[in-house]
Write a protein that binds this DNA or RNA. Structure first.
Length: 356
DNA sequence: AACCAGGGCAACCGCATACAG
DNA sequence: CCTGTATGCGGTTGCCCTGGT
């Protein structure tokens, strides 16, 4: 049995919206809020279906939308979140508060996907196309762990996105907004926009800081809003069982032994990845420097964050016109850095999670 | 100047999910 | 719990613009 259409399409206008239609929709929502989208067109005097009105509002007319060119940081955020979340544009959009999922999706499909492909990175898997190098010895194990972590984070971010949607719904239902014009100031200030984040990695590194480690990250290049504080720490995954050469090993703890409160808060909805208990935590200073890999357990290592992001940024820019440079040995480092940057991004999510 | 091809983006379609009765 | 409806989401389409020939 077929699904009934969302609205009676006979006699309803389709295609591009006219300024008059925009004005009507804005005026109605300003006065009454959107309420039921299905009922809105008739009340607002529009010959459109409710779905079309909702899309027009959410993708174009909403006052808290930033339009125009994507910044480099936004590009990085999209790429990294896409690596974690895949084509979950709505979830990605929650981390770019002033961008719509549709806009991000379009930007990905028309710009970023091609750029990654030019860099030799598969835009679907976010792995180097020549992935054979990763299967050498322990490298495959590391890659598997990273993938595992990414999958786990993906689930967590989805849960976050759901919470954000719920809170947005509550906000939107409290309309009417105070709209001023088709291009007004945001009704929701940027400071209220940062996505909530119950971030395992963040809680983790914060807890480490509480144990005596100085994990303040001085060089996060990511920002989520004009008013959001900089990220608190960068976390880096490095397979290692030994001491941390060239770094400062502040404390090593087994997760989740020292974070029962965090674990208790999470386990209702998420299970911990099986390999997670094997990861230990350490802190190192200064910029990324390639180290030989060690066998055994894994360290989660804190570093200052600028180097990779700068490098990645450079690559993005330089590769927009051609292939990647560097020898094969760079592939693995690049891949590792790539995933590290993704985890760093997650870690630098704003701290005001309603779940915390 | 005219035509064509490709890119970019707004909008639509249909499935998935949430929710109310 | 079941069913129908509303809304959200991701994939896709099609129009418009721009640059090349």
């Amino acid at each position: 049995m077929g699904r009934t259409p969302c609205c009676d399409k006979v006699g309803l206008k389709r295609g591009p919206w006219t300024p008059e239609e925009d004005k009507k929709l804005l005026a109605y929502i300003e006065l009454h809020g959107h309420g039921s989208w299905r009922a809105l067109p008739a009340k607002a005097g529009l010959q459109r279906c409710g779905k079309s009105c909702r899309l027009r509002w959410t993708n174009y007319l909403r006052p808290d939308i930033k339009r125009g060119k994507f910044s480099l940081q936004e590009e990085q955020t999209i790429i990294q979140l896409h690596a974690l979340l895949g084509n979950r544009w709505s979830a990605i959009a929650t981390h770019l508060p002033k961008r719509t999922d549709n806009e991000i999706k379009n930007y990905w499909n028309t710009h970023l996907k091609k750029r990654l492909a030019n860099m030799g990175i598969d835009p679907v898997t976010h792995k180097p196309k020549n992935d054979a190098l990763l299967s050498i010895d322990g490298h495959s194990k590391n890659a598997a762990n990273l993938t595992h972590m990414a999958q786990w984070e993906s689930a967590r971010l989805e849960a976050e996105a759901r919470l954000v949607r719920q809170s947005k719904l509550l906000r939107s239902n409290s309309l009417p907004h105070k709209l001023t014009s088709p291009a007004p100031a945001p009704a929701v200030p940027a400071s209220a926009s940062p996505p909530p984040c119950l971030d395992m990695l963040k809680a983790w590194s914060d807890s480490i800081a509480g144990l005596g480690g100085d994990l303040e990250s001085p060089t996060s290049t990511l920002s989520y809003s004009d008013n959001a504080p900089p990220s608190t720490a960068f976390v880096e995954f490095v397979p290692s069982s030994g001491s941390c050469d060239g770094g400062v090993l502040e404390k090593e703890e087994q997760f989740p032994t020292h974070f029962p409160e965090f674990k208790n808060g999470m386990e209702d909805t998420l299970s911990f990845p099986s390999g997670l208990q094997d990861w230990t935590v350490s802190a190192v200073d200064d910029r990324w420097t390639p180290e030989p890999f060690r066998s055994g357990g894994h360290e989660i290592t804190h570093v200052n964050g600028g180097s990779f992001m700068e490098k990645f940024t450079d690559q993005l820019v330089s590769n927009s016109s051609g292939g990647r440079s560097g020898g094969d040995s760079d592939y693995y480092e690049d891949n590792k850095n790539y995933w590290n940057s993704i985890l760093n991004l997650v870690n630098s999510s704003p701290p005001d999670s309603p779940m915390l």
